[in-house]
Structure formats: C-alpha cells, structure tokens
C-alpha cells in the first residue's frame, strides 16, 4: 500500500525578505534616503528660490507672482551690472592664477626631494583653514589703519605712503583675487599632482631619448595626459569662484563703492540686508545659466577627449 505522506509545506518567506529579493524594489529602497536628502536640501530650496525670484516676497510680506519683473529690475540696476561684470573678472583671473600656479607647484612637488611629504601636507593648509578665518587674517593684513604689510613696506623704506589695499577699487579687487588664488591653488596643485603621478615615466624617458627638451616633454607628453584632470579641476573651481561669497563678504563687504561686489554678495545685500527676498533670489539666479553653460561646455569637451 502506498502511503502518501503529506508534502512538507513550503515555509513562506517573510514579506521583507521577499521584497528585498525584488531588485527593483531593493534599488528603490536603497536610493530613497539619497533621493530624500536631495529633494529636501537641493530640489526644494532650488524650486523655492525660483518661485521667490518670480514673486514680490519680502521678509515681512508673502508677496505675489510678478513674472520676470525682478530680473528686469536687477538688470536695470547699475550696481547689479557692476557685480555681474566683477564676477566674471574675478572668476577669470582667479582661475587663471590658480591653474598656472597650481600646475607649477604640482610639477615641483612631482619631483623627488627631502621632506616631500611634509611640503605636500603643508601646502594644503590654506585650503584646510575655513575661508572666513583665513580671510579675517588677510583683512587684518590689509587693514586700512593697521596693515602689517604697509608697516613692513614702510619700515623697509619701500613706500612713503600707505598702499590703499582695500580702499581703492582696483587694489581691493586684486587683493580679493590674490586671496582666492592663495586659498584655491593647493586644490589645483594636489589634484594635478595626482594626475601627474598616473603618467608613466617611460613616456618621458622615451621623449628624452628622442631629444625633447623639458618644455616639449611637458607640452607633448604631460599636458595631453593631464588635460582631463585639469578640466575637471577647472570646472569645480569656476563653479566655486563664480558663486564665491564668504571671501568678499568678510574682506570688503562689496566695497569700496560696490567695486568688489559679486553676484552672490549683492544678492545677499538685497535679499537679507534690504529684506527683498524676491529680488535677492532673482539676482542669485543670474548665476545659474552662466554656470550651466560653463559646465556643459567643459563636460562636452571632456567627453570628446575621452572619445578620441
């Protein structure tokens, strides 16, 4: 006689286990925290900023939709136009200096010498110190009344009257560019150094054997291989410099006579200082298309390089 034993009942897996077996669901669960953070801290403020820029909101008034009025008003404001021009000038020259000096320092640090590690670590100091703190130190060095630089130059007999570091429009802008360069150059140097170390020394050796001098080795071997890294660094730097706020806010507050205002500092003055949130948001949004264009152009170029 055949006895049919009851088939063991397959233990039903818990819902959570079954859910986690579903790759799509698992992916969604794992992505959710990141999406939530992006939505709350990036997307919401951005959308809110766009909405504010299209409204007449001020600190004590919810405002109403005004279309592009704030943008037109900003464009008609001579101080805004100055700040807009300053932002390009500041970004261009600071980036040029950071790139040239960063490249030079990276090439030096790529050599072998005693204390190499210490120098590399020390070089990062300006980048590590909080911007506000280091800019305060610079502000004291450029202080109109107590500038240590003026005092040193005067005592050394190199100047007869104080140099107007922060009280003259041109001087103040170049002081700001210098500090930005001082602060940002280590980032360029260390990133380019990392790029340099990926270049096979055999290539340089081969070029040397072919009679290439130092400049030709750099131009024909180092630079082409370093270009992708350089472009990434430049993109990051342009974004950070174009939207710089802390340095100018602490160093000059936008003065003298608005000559060092950048878009970000002017947006703050209008949005927070004067309480016109809508106008302040509109001013800050002027940065968006410019940065978008820069990033798009450079990434496009980068992709072309990778494809070549």
């Amino acid at each position: 006689m055949e006895v049919a034993l009851p088939r063991p009942r397959a233990a039903r897996e818990p819902f959570l286990t079954r859910s986690l077996d579903n790759e799509r669901l698992l992916a969604a669960i794992l992505l959710a925290p990141a999406v939530l953070i992006l939505a709350v801290f990036i997307a919401y403020p951005f959308v809110m900023g766009v909405w504010l820029s299209l409204s007449s909101t001020s600190v004590g008034n919810p405002g109403e939709f005004v279309g592009l009025k704030n943008f037109l008003k900003a464009w008609d404001d001579s101080i805004f136009r100055t700040a807009f021009g300053n932002t390009f000038f500041y970004t261009f020259w600071a980036t040029v200096f950071k790139l040239s000096l960063g490249m030079w320092v990276a090439l030096l640090l790529n050599r072998h010498f005693r204390g190499k590690r210490l120098v590399r670590a020390a070089m990062l100091l300006p980048f590590i110190i909080p911007t506000v703190l280091s800019t305060f130190a610079w502000r004291w060095m450029f202080d109109p009344t107590f500038s240590v630089l003026n005092w040193t130059l005067y005592k050394a007999g190199l100047i007869a009257t104080k140099l107007p570091f922060l009280s003259d429009s041109t001087w103040a802008m170049w002081c700001a560019i210098s500090i930005n360069t001082w602060r940002g150059m280590p980032f360029f140097a260390i990133t380019l150094l990392a790029g340099l170390q990926t270049i096979n020394p055999d290539l340089h050796e081969a070029a040397s054997l072919d009679g290439a001098n130092a400049w030709r080795r750099f131009w024909h071997v180092t630079w082409p291989l370093l270009k992708p890294v350089t472009l990434v660094v430049v993109v990051f730097s342009v974004i950070q410099t174009f939207s710089d706020f802390q340095l100018i806010y602490v160093l000059t507050g936008g003065g003298p006579a608005n000559s060092t205002h950048l878009v970000a500092t002017y947006a703050y003055q209008i949005g927070v200082g004067a309480g016109l949130l809508g106008e302040g948001a509109a001013i800050s949004l002027f940065m968006l298309p410019v940065l978008f264009f820069v990033v798009w152009m450079q990434l496009r170029y980068l992709r072309r390089l990778e494809g070549a």
């Binding site: 109109p144 009344t145 107590f146 104080k162 107007p164 570091f165 922060l166 009280s167 003259d168 103040a172 000059t252 507050g253 003065g255 003298p256 006579a257």
Partner: peptide, 16 residues
C-alpha cells in the same frame, strides 16, 4: 580725512 575711509567698517572708527 584718512584716505582709507572708503574701506572702513563699523569698527574702524573705534580703532581709529
């Protein structure tokens, strides 16, 4: 007046 008054902040006159 001092030529650097254009770069003064609210604490500069105290320091002056």
């Amino acid at each position: 007046l001092p030529p650097d008054i254009y770069a003064w902040d609210d604490g500069s006159n105290n320091r002056w």
